[in-house]
Amino acid sequence: MTLLEVDNVSHWYGTKAQRPVLDHVNLSLGTGETVALVGESGCGKSTLGRLVAGLTTSTLGTIRHDGREVARLSRAEHKIWRRSVQLIHQDPFGALNPGVRIGSTLGTALRYHKLVDRAHLEQELLGLLGQVGLEATRDFLHRYPHELSGGQRQRVCIARAVSLRPKLVVADEVTSMLDVSMRVSVLDLLRSFQVQRSIAFLFISHDLGVVRYFAAGGRVVVMFYGVIVEEGPTEEVIFHPRHPYTALLLESIPIPDPTLARREHGSVDTVPDAGPSPQGCVFSNRCRFAVDRCRTTTPKLEDDGHGHRAACFFIERVVRETTTSAVTDRAPDLDSGATCDPSTAGTQA
């Protein structure tokens, strides 16, 4: 059953801007499914997250939740919908009211939605802290956000989101402001909720390494300036990109391995740092494959028959010519046992 349907949504900020922030975006998400939204800053991925979470209403197009159009819900229905879609922000420092204790931050929404009566509130909150790996004590509930580390704050934000038993969580760059040593545990925590409670995730990130980890088995949607240019199963998109932009993003990722990094240098240095093209394919200004046709005609998303879709006239060439540079080198011997990445060699044994 489709939980979320984004149907032909376009969105503009202000009236003077010629380019929409989102340009005819279609997206659907099933119950318990994970979809990762990938793209550079300004590509509209956060805007889409805000639309899905109901913080903004789209200029054009409709968003349906459980088959019902969100904009037409009655007041009572809206309140239920509001609870079933939750948002976790990028910045755990800005997402918690500095003047409110953790207990109140977590308790307010629970009480508002009447999910727990007053007598059982504290017990529920302590249970919640335990579930997100925080110290389940009364003392913790009485703390203020400034007394917590970044990782702890993000866990509080996660607790607040999952406490309302949502069906869908929009996670907007949730690990980008956390320390490296904390990231994986926060991702693991989110995954555990996804598995145990079949919560669907719209996971917004520009970090394809994190996306590969979190959305393993799910889907990836790649956006460039408001346009979806590629979407498909996570592993397919990352290891067999069909759109030149996805290939470029993969080649751009800084690699935590100096030997590989040296070998890779320069492969993308010649690509112009260009914005969207006003006409034709949105990516044509930055694309190494672009020809005249790309600047006049807009390619449509084409399915390869297995749910992997890309909007490009030269999918075949992209697959042929980037497999070597972007994928083989980047993911050496994916299936064989050869050790190319010593950083993880020890953990694999």
Partner: peptide, 25 residues
């Protein structure tokens, strides 16, 4: 340092076998 390098999810081979560092700074 070894643990920190082993905690980075990446698109490289082995990029999924990451392990967080327990505890905090």
């Amino acid at each position: 340092v070894a643990a920190l390098i082993g905690a980075i999810p990446s698109v490289l081979k082995g990029g999924l076998t990451v392990r967080p560092i327990p505890g905090q700074v």
